[in-house]
Design a protein around this nucleic acid. Sequence first.
RNA 1: GCGGGUGUGGCGGAAUUGGCAGACGCGCCAGACUUAGGAUCUGGUGUCAAUGACGUGGGAGUUCAAGUCUCUUCACCCGCACCA
Length: 823
Amino acid sequence: MRYDFKAIEEKWQKKWAENNSFKISEDTSKPKYYALEMFPYPSGNLHMGHVRNYSIGDVVARYKTMRGYNVLHPMGWDSFGLPAENAAIKNGTPPAEWTWKNIDNMREQLKRLGFSYDWDREVATAKPDYYKFTQWMFLQLYKNGLAYKKKSYVNWCPSCQTVLANEQVVNGKCDRCKSEVGKKDLEQWFFKITDYAQKLLDDISTLDGWPEKVKSMQTNWIGRSEGAEIKFKIDGTDKELTVYTTRPDTIFGVSYMVIAPEHPLVKELIAGRPEEKKCLEFIERVQKQSEIVRSATDTEKEGEFTGVYMVNPLNNEKIPLYLANYVFLDYGTGIVMGVPAHDQRDFDFAKKYNLPIRIVIQPKDSNLKSEELTEAFAAEGIMENSGQFDGLNNKEALKKIIDYVEEKGIGNRKVNFRLRDWLISRQRYWGAPIPIVYCEKCGTVEIPESELPVKLPENVKFTGQGKSPLSECEEFVNTTCPKCGGPAKRETDTMDTFVCSSWYYLRYCDPKNDKMPFSKESTDYWMNVDQYIGGVEHAILHLLYARFFTKVLNDLGYVSCSEPFKNLLTQGMVLKDGTKMSKSLGNVVSPEEIISKYGADTARLFILFAAPPERDLEWSDTAVEGSYRFINRVWRAVIELKDCITDEKIDKTSLTDGEKKLRFAVNASIKKVTEDFERFSFNTAISSIMEMVNALYQYKDNTPKESYNNAVISEAVTTLVKLLSPFIPHVTQELWEILGMDTDLLHETWCEYDEAALVVSEIEIVVQVNGKIKDKIMISPDLSQDEMKEQAMSNAKVKEAIDGKQVVKCIAIPKKLVNIVVK
RNA sequence: GCGGGUGUGGCGGAAUUGGCAGACGCGCCAGACUUAGGAUCUGGUGUCAAUGACGUGGGAGUUCAAGUCUCUUCACCCGCACCA
């Protein structure tokens, strides 16, 4: 007999929708719990990664609800972005139409999986009632000096025809379309995330519920380094250049200096010199090098002498200034000092261009000579050739040299971050328009909050060529200045979609508010997100931006929390044949297919049982089959025993051994499943329910029907259905009804285990001799250690093993084992 | 190079606090029921020269006792990567 999953799942999904079963509102009588999964991009269809992500979230939400929490469990759509525009170019479907259609389809797919979302709180970032507030967010940042426009050398994707944030350039390629990213000098909007670099870094240490990996990735990305800026005079002039270094202790070893070829001062420096022509050629050549080549560790270091000499402020030595491809304009000052003896890159460069190598730090136990040096010495040591600092440990000297430099006014301590400001403008149509106009009289003017949203025009053409469709839409571009009423032109860039997703978790708290993005009261009640679940691919981008937004909103007084996500779970990927499922490899298993073949409950159960949530999961058709078999096994047992259900209390004084065994399995399972839920170990929770089902079969198949203890069976069957309900909500709700219950399982209280059922009269312990198992014996669990030892000593196999030997030691561990050590 | 992680049967995985390694499931083998089985139920299933020995990537160490702790080494995965 097989259960009719199709009819059952449809039936309950319909009922849940009719009864608004998942609707939630603020309720101060209960503790709150905010369970959140990363909202999807509406590509059109769910994939297994979504199913996994949302199954994990749903099981958490349902469990917490049964534990008495008031659970916020929302869903929405990260619905701006390029694919919608590409579809428009390809098929002529307007992006909005394409997007809403995909959302409708995916919403249905989510409903078919039985997830307990409060659909009344659904948000879509591409809807005016949402992006109105994304624009509001922009204005808050703008008014507080955290959004600015500047001309800069930015990443440009020639295929997407737009600029990209640093975070969206992966190995020199566009994160979205994989084409090679170039550089362009453009006027662009930025968010000043660097103002929050230190805070974002410091608060990582408060994120106890985040995976180490994500924390270390963010730490690396922020990339704090401590050092000093030191001014070097240009020889023969009063002008100075400033370098940034983390190793001021090596300053007496400087034998050259390097400036980034794109540095704005370069042209002026080389003007009119005999080296000018060669330098200009070099600059052109370096600029042609792609970003990938340029930034690769193994790219050969190349340089060109500028003809300029610098003066080392510590020892007044004259040193040459080079252009070189290994220095970045956008880190530090774009100018660095070259210390070949103590930096590997400088060593390689000096070897190539025959620059002097001078040792200024000696290892404690050897004596290096510069002409014998085969690689830079970068470790700790004792200072030499460094004037008054000779003989000091270099760590100490580092501080003293900075002190000296600060005293003389030729430099200062400086902390640098690798984090750059967040480039948020995109030359695309399908995004939230930046609420700014340019007026001939007033200049850059922000749109007043009362006039939001700046709506996306609907009648635009998509050619895929040239400029963004927005900039070619006359009725959008031409407007009046909100300040003076004169003619003005709108900003035609839209915002990076990551701006939209940086605050959506706040909108869920108060999704219908049309005055503000959310009320303070609503976020005070619901925030923080207690459990956030999603893929590790967002470790830097989304998770860093969302932290930044929360901190800004906190500083501006709009929210009380300074971190959005208390706990973070990064789920593993769903693999097939050892690799990621992908269309090009043809190894994609579609959720639709699995749902129609086995039902949503089986899909959910398999995906949670096959691996722990953080680990990658290998898809296995036969194992899916196994999960389906298990549900059928549960179904048959419950149906068979349904008439045994009774309200009678268990008479604990007269239980048979079989009944005790069943009660033990049931209560041990409640304990185990509850503990496993708390640590998100769903695979082991399910396995312990399987053991319980095995025990139930043992009991029912080995007990004559007339001897059934209905009270014990009732306990087992109702417990089974409840424990399974977060995993497989449809079939358990159906069984609940079959058992004569008319309540909603989701709002039943979670099972409590009976301590008394876990007490047994005899337990098995292991008897070892010299750590090797000799026998297993049954004893009373409350025997003293001495009594345990006695029992072990009198065991026949032990006697044989220790015969003629001297007992040196005997260790007894209550309820576990006895180990006898002999010589 | 730096940072994070993983390594356990044929496979997915379990062992949460140093205490019976391999729970649970898949696969496989056998049996029962059956006209039939790709249904169901029951039993078996780490390896080997098999009353015993060996066994958690390798090597050492601490301990009565190590998958778990320490040191060392290897392999693989992920992230960052010429950041001065």
